[in-house]
Protein backbone atom coordinates (compact mmCIF):
# COMPACT_ATOMS: atom_id res chain seq x y z
CA UNK A 1 0.00 0.00 0.00
CA UNK A 2 2.81 2.37 0.93
CA UNK A 3 4.62 1.79 -2.37
CA UNK A 4 1.34 2.15 -4.30
CA UNK A 5 0.75 5.64 -2.95
CA UNK A 6 4.42 6.54 -3.38
CA UNK A 7 4.29 5.38 -6.99
CA UNK A 8 1.14 7.37 -7.57
CA UNK A 9 2.83 10.50 -6.20
CA UNK A 10 5.80 10.14 -8.52
CA UNK A 11 3.55 9.48 -11.51
CA UNK A 12 1.49 12.56 -10.65
CA UNK A 13 4.59 14.74 -10.40
CA UNK A 14 5.82 13.58 -13.80
CA UNK A 15 2.36 14.27 -15.26
CA UNK A 16 2.43 17.80 -13.89
CA UNK A 17 5.85 18.53 -15.42
CA UNK A 18 4.83 16.88 -18.68
CA UNK A 19 1.79 19.14 -18.96
CA UNK A 20 3.98 22.20 -18.41
CA UNK A 21 6.46 21.05 -21.06
CA UNK A 22 3.67 20.37 -23.55
CA UNK A 23 2.44 23.93 -23.18
CA UNK A 24 5.91 25.42 -23.47
CA UNK A 25 7.43 23.27 -26.22
CA UNK A 26 4.57 21.34 -27.79
CA UNK A 27 2.87 18.05 -27.00
CA UNK A 28 4.98 16.19 -29.59
CA UNK A 29 8.25 17.87 -28.65
CA UNK A 30 11.48 16.12 -27.75
CA UNK A 31 11.19 17.76 -24.34
CA UNK A 32 8.11 15.64 -23.63
CA UNK A 33 9.69 12.52 -25.13
CA UNK A 34 12.75 13.07 -22.93
CA UNK A 35 10.55 13.37 -19.85
CA UNK A 36 8.68 10.15 -20.67
CA UNK A 37 12.05 8.41 -20.99
CA UNK A 38 13.12 9.74 -17.61
CA UNK A 39 9.80 8.68 -16.12
CA UNK A 40 10.40 5.15 -17.37
CA UNK A 41 13.79 5.13 -15.61
CA UNK A 42 12.05 6.27 -12.42
CA UNK A 43 9.33 3.65 -12.74
CA UNK A 44 11.92 0.91 -13.28
CA UNK A 45 13.72 2.07 -10.14
CA UNK A 46 10.50 1.92 -8.12
CA UNK A 47 9.69 -1.48 -9.57
CA UNK A 48 13.13 -2.78 -8.55
CA UNK A 49 12.25 -1.64 -5.04
CA UNK A 50 8.88 -3.40 -5.03
CA UNK A 51 8.13 -5.69 -7.96
CA UNK A 52 4.53 -6.18 -6.75
CA UNK A 53 3.58 -2.52 -7.00
CA UNK A 54 0.71 -2.70 -9.52
CA UNK A 55 0.42 1.02 -10.22
CA UNK A 56 4.09 1.25 -11.14
CA UNK A 57 4.04 -1.97 -13.20
CA UNK A 58 1.04 -0.62 -15.10
CA UNK A 59 2.80 2.67 -15.78
CA UNK A 60 5.88 0.83 -17.09
CA UNK A 61 3.56 -1.01 -19.45
CA UNK A 62 2.13 2.29 -20.70
CA UNK A 63 5.40 4.16 -21.08
CA UNK A 64 7.20 1.69 -23.35
CA UNK A 65 4.67 1.82 -26.20
CA UNK A 66 4.13 5.57 -25.70
CA UNK A 67 7.84 6.36 -26.13
CA UNK A 68 8.26 3.98 -29.07
CA UNK A 69 5.23 5.47 -30.80
CA UNK A 70 6.72 8.95 -30.52
CA UNK A 71 10.01 7.80 -32.07
CA UNK A 72 8.13 5.99 -34.84
CA UNK A 73 5.89 8.88 -35.81
CA UNK A 74 8.25 11.84 -35.38
CA UNK A 75 11.21 10.43 -37.30
CA UNK A 76 14.87 11.36 -36.94
CA UNK A 77 17.22 13.81 -38.56
CA UNK A 78 19.16 12.40 -41.50
CA UNK A 79 22.90 11.78 -41.66
CA UNK A 80 25.12 14.45 -43.17
CA UNK A 81 27.04 11.67 -44.92
CA UNK A 82 26.57 7.94 -45.04
CA UNK A 83 29.68 6.41 -43.50
CA UNK A 84 28.35 3.01 -42.50
CA UNK A 85 27.30 -0.09 -44.38
CA UNK A 86 25.66 -3.39 -43.59
CA UNK A 87 28.18 -6.19 -44.08
CA UNK A 88 26.10 -9.13 -42.86
CA UNK A 89 22.56 -10.08 -42.01
CA UNK A 90 21.06 -12.59 -39.58
CA UNK A 91 22.10 -10.86 -37.38
CA UNK A 92 22.74 -7.50 -38.99
CA UNK A 93 26.37 -6.37 -38.73
CA UNK A 94 27.12 -2.72 -39.49
CA UNK A 95 30.61 -1.46 -40.26
CA UNK A 96 31.78 2.13 -39.93
CA UNK A 97 34.08 3.64 -42.54
CA UNK A 98 37.73 2.91 -41.66
CA UNK A 99 39.25 5.88 -43.49
CA UNK A 100 36.93 8.30 -41.77
CA UNK A 101 37.59 6.73 -38.38
CA UNK A 102 41.37 7.02 -38.76
CA UNK A 103 41.10 10.60 -39.95
CA UNK A 104 38.48 11.89 -37.52
CA UNK A 105 38.53 9.71 -34.41
CA UNK A 106 41.81 7.78 -33.97
CA UNK A 107 43.61 10.69 -32.33
CA UNK A 108 40.57 11.46 -30.19
CA UNK A 109 40.53 7.87 -28.93
CA UNK A 110 44.23 8.04 -28.08
CA UNK A 111 43.86 11.35 -26.30
CA UNK A 112 41.01 10.01 -24.18
CA UNK A 113 43.32 7.45 -22.59
CA UNK A 114 40.35 5.14 -22.26
CA UNK A 115 38.86 2.08 -23.89
CA UNK A 116 35.41 0.58 -23.84
CA UNK A 117 34.78 -2.01 -21.13
CA UNK A 118 33.30 -5.42 -21.91
CA UNK A 119 30.43 -6.17 -19.53
CA UNK A 120 30.59 -9.86 -18.69
CA UNK A 121 28.66 -10.22 -15.44
CA UNK A 122 26.43 -8.20 -13.15
CA UNK A 123 28.97 -7.62 -10.38
CA UNK A 124 31.59 -6.39 -12.84
CA UNK A 125 29.00 -4.21 -14.55
CA UNK A 126 28.02 -2.54 -11.31
CA UNK A 127 31.65 -1.77 -10.58
CA UNK A 128 31.88 0.09 -13.88
CA UNK A 129 28.38 1.50 -14.33
CA UNK A 130 26.60 3.89 -12.01
CA UNK A 131 22.99 2.85 -11.56
CA UNK A 132 20.67 5.33 -13.24
CA UNK A 133 23.35 6.99 -15.37
CA UNK A 134 23.40 6.78 -19.15
CA UNK A 135 26.29 5.23 -21.11
CA UNK A 136 27.20 4.80 -24.74
CA UNK A 137 27.27 1.12 -25.67
CA UNK A 138 28.02 -1.08 -28.65
CA UNK A 139 27.25 -4.77 -29.08
CA UNK A 140 30.06 -6.13 -31.22
CA UNK A 141 29.81 -8.84 -33.84
CA UNK A 142 30.56 -11.50 -31.21
CA UNK A 143 27.56 -10.36 -29.19
CA UNK A 144 29.68 -8.77 -26.43
CA UNK A 145 28.22 -5.71 -24.69
CA UNK A 146 30.82 -2.92 -24.59
CA UNK A 147 30.26 0.32 -22.68
CA UNK A 148 32.23 3.52 -22.59
CA UNK A 149 33.02 3.99 -18.88
CA UNK A 150 31.90 7.59 -18.64
CA UNK A 151 28.42 8.39 -17.30
CA UNK A 152 26.33 10.95 -19.16
CA UNK A 153 23.03 12.46 -18.27
CA UNK A 154 20.13 11.76 -20.57
CA UNK A 155 19.50 15.47 -21.20
CA UNK A 156 23.00 15.86 -22.59
CA UNK A 157 22.62 12.82 -24.83
CA UNK A 158 19.15 13.86 -25.95
CA UNK A 159 19.81 17.51 -26.71
CA UNK A 160 23.59 17.84 -26.93
CA UNK A 161 23.64 16.88 -30.61
CA UNK A 162 20.67 18.94 -31.69
CA UNK A 163 21.18 21.30 -34.63
CA UNK A 164 23.12 24.32 -33.42
CA UNK A 165 24.30 22.49 -30.33
CA UNK A 166 27.89 22.19 -29.09
CA UNK A 167 30.30 19.86 -30.87
CA UNK A 168 33.14 19.31 -28.39
CA UNK A 169 36.25 18.06 -30.15
CA UNK A 170 36.85 15.37 -27.53
CA UNK A 171 33.38 13.90 -27.57
CA UNK A 172 33.18 10.12 -27.61
CA UNK A 173 31.37 8.51 -30.54
CA UNK A 174 30.28 4.90 -30.97
CA UNK A 175 33.02 3.71 -33.38
CA UNK A 176 35.56 4.54 -30.65
CA UNK A 177 34.13 1.62 -28.65
CA UNK A 178 35.12 -0.87 -31.36
CA UNK A 179 38.25 0.62 -32.96
CA UNK A 180 39.73 -2.68 -34.16
CA UNK A 181 36.84 -3.94 -36.27
CA UNK A 182 34.52 -0.91 -36.38
CA UNK A 183 31.62 -3.34 -36.46
CA UNK A 184 28.41 -3.36 -34.43
CA UNK A 185 25.26 -5.42 -34.20
CA UNK A 186 23.64 -2.74 -32.01
CA UNK A 187 24.72 0.67 -30.66
CA UNK A 188 23.12 3.45 -28.67
CA UNK A 189 22.69 4.47 -25.05
CA UNK A 190 21.76 2.39 -22.05
CA UNK A 191 20.81 2.98 -18.44
CA UNK A 192 21.06 0.24 -15.82
CA UNK A 193 18.45 0.78 -13.12
CA UNK A 194 17.72 -0.93 -9.83
CA UNK A 195 19.94 -2.57 -7.25
CA UNK A 196 22.56 -5.34 -7.20
CA UNK A 197 19.67 -7.71 -6.41
CA UNK A 198 17.32 -6.62 -9.19
CA UNK A 199 18.35 -4.72 -12.31
CA UNK A 200 16.51 -3.45 -15.36
CA UNK A 201 17.95 -1.93 -18.53
CA UNK A 202 16.55 0.95 -20.55
CA UNK A 203 18.33 1.09 -23.90
CA UNK A 204 17.97 2.60 -27.35
CA UNK A 205 19.57 2.36 -30.78
CA UNK A 206 20.42 6.04 -31.18
CA UNK A 207 23.89 5.68 -32.66
CA UNK A 208 24.33 8.32 -35.33
CA UNK A 209 27.38 6.52 -36.69
CA UNK A 210 26.06 2.96 -37.01
CA UNK A 211 22.37 3.84 -37.48
CA UNK A 212 21.14 0.39 -36.40
CA UNK A 213 17.72 -0.63 -37.65
CA UNK A 214 14.92 -1.95 -35.50
CA UNK A 215 16.01 -5.55 -36.11
CA UNK A 216 19.09 -4.79 -33.97
CA UNK A 217 16.95 -4.52 -30.83
CA UNK A 218 17.16 -8.29 -30.37
CA UNK A 219 20.96 -8.07 -30.22
CA UNK A 220 21.12 -5.53 -27.41
CA UNK A 221 18.38 -7.32 -25.51
CA UNK A 222 20.14 -10.67 -25.60
CA UNK A 223 23.57 -9.13 -24.91
CA UNK A 224 22.24 -7.27 -21.88
CA UNK A 225 20.43 -10.36 -20.59
CA UNK A 226 23.65 -12.37 -20.81
CA UNK A 227 25.91 -9.67 -19.41
CA UNK A 228 23.71 -8.67 -16.49
CA UNK A 229 22.15 -12.08 -15.78
CA UNK A 230 18.63 -10.85 -16.41
CA UNK A 231 16.29 -13.81 -16.91
CA UNK A 232 13.16 -12.03 -18.12
CA UNK A 233 13.37 -10.17 -21.47
CA UNK A 234 10.58 -7.90 -20.19
CA UNK A 235 13.18 -6.42 -17.85
CA UNK A 236 14.88 -4.75 -20.78
CA UNK A 237 13.32 -1.84 -22.68
CA UNK A 238 14.82 -1.21 -26.11
CA UNK A 239 13.70 1.73 -28.23
CA UNK A 240 14.32 1.77 -31.95
CA UNK A 241 14.46 4.67 -34.37
CA UNK A 242 12.92 4.76 -37.83
CA UNK A 243 15.04 5.40 -40.91
CA UNK A 244 16.10 9.03 -41.33
CA UNK A 245 13.52 11.23 -43.00
CA UNK A 246 15.54 14.31 -43.88
CA UNK A 247 19.18 15.22 -44.39
Amino acid sequence: MRSQSAGTAVIARFAQVRADLAVRYGAQSQAVTFLLYEELVSMRRLLADDSRCAVVARRVGELGPAIQSRFDTAGVLGAERVLHRTVATGPTVIEFDRDHFERAYRARLGASGRRAVAVTDRAAALRVLRLGASYLYVVDEEGVLLVWPEPRDVADLTFGWAPGGPRPADRVVHPMLVPERLRATAAGELVVVGSPRCVFVVANLKSGHFRPGSECAAQVRSAAMRALRIDDPAGIDVFTLPQATAA
Binding site: L21, T33, V76, L157, W161, P163, S207
Partner: peptide, 30 residues
Protein backbone atom coordinates in the same frame (compact mmCIF):
# COMPACT_ATOMS: atom_id res chain seq x y z
CA UNK B 1 15.32 16.96 -14.43
CA UNK B 2 13.39 20.23 -14.56
CA UNK B 3 16.58 22.10 -13.71
CA UNK B 4 18.49 20.31 -16.46
CA UNK B 5 15.79 21.26 -18.96
CA UNK B 6 15.98 24.88 -17.86
CA UNK B 7 19.73 24.72 -18.39
CA UNK B 8 19.23 23.39 -21.91
CA UNK B 9 16.62 26.06 -22.61
CA UNK B 10 19.05 28.76 -21.51
CA UNK B 11 21.53 27.82 -24.23
CA UNK B 12 21.52 29.41 -27.66
CA UNK B 13 20.13 26.30 -29.33
CA UNK B 14 18.07 25.05 -26.39
CA UNK B 15 14.53 26.18 -27.12
CA UNK B 16 14.74 24.88 -30.67
CA UNK B 17 16.16 21.55 -29.49
CA UNK B 18 13.48 21.10 -26.86
CA UNK B 19 10.71 22.00 -29.32
CA UNK B 20 11.86 19.66 -32.10
CA UNK B 21 9.61 16.74 -32.85
CA UNK B 22 12.29 14.69 -34.61
CA UNK B 23 14.68 12.69 -32.45
CA UNK B 24 18.40 13.33 -32.59
CA UNK B 25 21.11 10.73 -32.32
CA UNK B 26 23.43 10.41 -29.33
CA UNK B 27 26.35 11.22 -31.62
CA UNK B 28 26.69 12.59 -35.12
CA UNK B 29 29.28 11.96 -37.77
CA UNK B 30 32.00 14.54 -37.81
Amino acid sequence: IVESLLAVDATEYGTQALSMTQATFSDTQG
